[in-house]
Amino acid sequence: MRSFEQILNDISKIPYHDTFGTKKEIKYLPNILDDNETVLSFTSGFFDGNTWLIVLTHRRLIFLDKGMIYGLKQREIPLDHINSVGHKIGLMLGSIAIQDGASAIRIDNIQKQTIVPFIDALNKSIDNFKMGRSTCKEYSSMSSADEIKKYKQLLDEGIITNEEFNIKKKQILGL
Rank of each mutant, 00 (worst) to 15 (best):
L56T: 02
G86I: 01
F47A: 05
R59W: 12
S125I: 03
Q111T: 12
M68R: 08
R59Q: 11
S95I: 01
I105L: 13
V85D: 00
R133G: 05
L154I: 07
N162G: 14
Q74W: 10
S84A: 08
T57K: 01
D80I: 06
K150H: 12
L155G: 07
N50I: 11
I115W: 02
E147T: 10
C136E: 11
F118L: 00
N83K: 11
G86V: 01
L93N: 06
L91P: 05
R75H: 14
I89N: 05
G71Y: 10
Y139P: 02
V55S: 00
R133M: 06
V116C: 06
E138I: 04
R133F: 07
L122E: 00
I98T: 02
K149F: 08
M131I: 09
Q113V: 14
M131D: 14
N109C: 13
K73A: 08
M131V: 10
G86N: 02
S141Q: 14
I54P: 01
R60I: 05
Q99Y: 07
G158C: 04
S125M: 05
R75I: 08
I98W: 01
N50T: 04
A97C: 11
S140H: 14
V85A: 02
N109Q: 15
D100T: 13
E147N: 12
K152H: 11
K150C: 15
G67M: 04
D127A: 12
I77C: 04
I54T: 04
R106L: 10
C136Y: 10
T161F: 06
K124V: 10
G132I: 02
I96D: 00
G158L: 03
G101C: 01
D146A: 06
Q111I: 06
N123K: 09
L154G: 03
M142D: 15
